[in-house]
Design a protein around this nucleic acid. Structure first.
Lengths: 157, 157
DNA sequence: CAGATGAAGGTCAGTAATAGTCAAAGAAAG
DNA sequence: CTTTCTTTGACTATTACTGACCTTCATCTG
């Protein structure tokens, strides 16, 4: 049981499990056809179920020979807490809250003091270059960098 | 890699790799014939895949004995070059320019395909959450992530 | 020489094949 | 009844490919 979106989600996850490479490439139009729905329904499923937060990376290309590729990047159990912290960042992030989050992640052993220094430096550099919306940009930057750090550290390059 | 343009691109890159001089000379008409397409398709491939931003120089001559020569730009110092690429980002960055920069850095061996996918995913996730100013945010995010990646890799050696 | 000829490559606009966006309508949940 | 999630479709954006027409250059011919 469940909605059409649920079925499409399940189908894509099934494809991912069967795939050795943890990634699958599909055609939006074909998939929509297989489920007898409009193509944009596929975008809805991707946007709501296959987000970075949930551990998926979606790439696509338009035009002739276009495709949608979905990859699963597995997040380990011990990273769940860190992932929740990232989620809590929201759309804006003050410097104070950033410091709190960095401190907690450091406590958890997820990042090193060096990571913190790098993040502070980069964020300062980037937010210094704009007049308005510093908290918005800081939220995006910190989330991006932390996600990257956490994601890449539990995996071989 | 599915389209004809992709195949032609791969073929030319293959030729370049086999060549000691890092450059290759070809005949547009012959190449088009080999791939059973119109000659202007070759121009399309050159214009979209072998740009200066991606590190290629294309020279050609018309008339009898005409040719197309494609050279792969070599740089003495990859790090300096990468730094210049980052500097070239500026305050705004379109998706297309991002792709070119990622392709170039990958080509230089500074980042891996996995890095690219992560960056694309993170950027997509973050820029998808806002309505306006995507190019501004993308510039900051890409600069931040690339800076972080390159910085932490250099310290490792 | 000068002009003609033929053999390259170049340009551009149009067509086709994809995927993305957004807002509104509909359905389900609280 | 209100809020949130799902579904739809009209409109938009991007990429690939083609073909008619244009430009350049080497060589031939008188």
């Amino acid at each position: 049981m469940g909605t059409l979106a649920d079925h499409i989600e399940a189908y894509i996850k099934h494809l991912l499990q069967r795939s050795e490479s943890r990634s699958v490439e599909l055609s939006r139009a074909q998939l929509a056809d297989a489920f007898s729905c409009v193509p944009s329904q596929i975008n809805y499923v991707l946007a709501t179920r296959f987000t970075l937060e949930r551990g998926y990376i979606v790439e696509s290309r338009r035009g002739g020979g276009g495709y949608i590729r979905i990859a699963h990047v597995q997040v380990e159990d011990d990273l769940t807490h860190a992932a929740n912290l990232l989620k809590s960042i929201g759309s804006q992030l003050s410097e104070r809250r950033m410091e709190n989050i960095l401190a907690r992640l450091q406590d958890l052993g997820m990042i090193t003091p060096r990571h913190c220094r790098l993040i502070r430096g980069i964020v300062q550099q980037e937010t210094g270059a704009i007049g308005q919306g510093k908290d918005l940009l800081r939220a995006s930057l910190v989330r991006a960098l932390l996600f990257y750090i956490i994601e890449s550290e539990c995996r071989e390059w």
